[in-house]
Design a protein around this nucleic acid. Sequence first.
DNA 1: GTTGCAGATGCAATAGATTTGCATTAAGTT
DNA 2: AACTTAATGCAAATCTATTGCATCTGCAAC
Lengths: 141, 141
Amino acid sequence: MSESAVEQSKLLIREAGLRATPARVATLNLLQKSSSPLTHAEVAEHLSKTGVDKATAFRALNDMTEAGLLRRTELGDRVWRFELIGEGEHEHLGHPHFVCVDCGQVSCLGDIKLNQRSLSTSTQIGRITEILLRGQCVECL
Amino acid sequence: MSESAVEQSKLLIREAGLRATPARVATLNLLQKSSSPLTHAEVAEHLSKTGVDKATAFRALNDMTEAGLLRRTELGDRVWRFELIGEGEHEHLGHPHFVCVDCGQVSCLGDIKLNQRSLSTSTQIGRITEILLRGQCVECL
DNA sequence: GTTGCAGATGCAATAGATTTGCATTAAGTT
DNA sequence: AACTTAATGCAAATCTATTGCATCTGCAAC
Ligand SMILES: [Mn+2]
Ligand SMILES: [Mn+2]
Ligand SMILES: [Zn+2]
Ligand SMILES: [Zn+2]
């Protein structure tokens, strides 16, 4: 992890109104490098190598989520996952995800849209802000 | 609950290879009348009125799910929900659901489809078997 | 560079949903 | 009616996440 990346994380954290502690900086940097959302356990295990308690890891994730730096979602396996909120992304309007029901692999998706007919159905239900797809990944087919 | 409905439930349960106990019959009949999937707690509370323990309610739901009578899904709020598998429905290929992130209301949806572009994206990911939409229901908008 | 203090952390205890062990009961068969 | 084995009741245990509290530390002000 480059020096500048650490400094940039510290800035982001402070801008969000939180103190830039080692646990938070490490968490943010870890999520920055990850291509899919990470669970509390995954982050906690990473941080534990530097002696950080899992309660602290969890609080780092929750606090940064409340502060608007991260997004927290539950993808159907009863475990919270956290990911960085991208530059242009709206805080509560995330991108779609895919979860493999066999191996548990999670993928972040780009531009998934409903067809016209489904869209009109959906407006009668309310405002859709999140799409989650589940199934079998190519590995597990 | 009509006599014939009870007898029909008993038959269904026995056909699935399970004993037709009062707890299971009551569970099946309750789910039959419900228009959206019910949680463990909701079913357990209903059954508790007739003296059924919640562990039994949980086992009734899990056992009938394993036996192929029910479908169990987690819609993002860390609680299992159960619904009858319809006549024509495939066991693992359910219908889409919508969950209101504000009030928690759950709706079963009919024919939600992805648009053509998203469909081709999805085949590169794997086989989609379930779609979950989240957002705000009309009540909460 | 030192100080002060609100915010952050460690550790253990707790919470909420679901599951499991085990002795006892009862469904379905003979 | 008796028998065999699945199902149940009750309590204890799991699993994931949260919280209380004493102690520590980031960082802003001297
Ligand atoms: Mn993502
Ligand atoms: Mn449904
Ligand atoms: Zn897979
Ligand atoms: Zn609502």
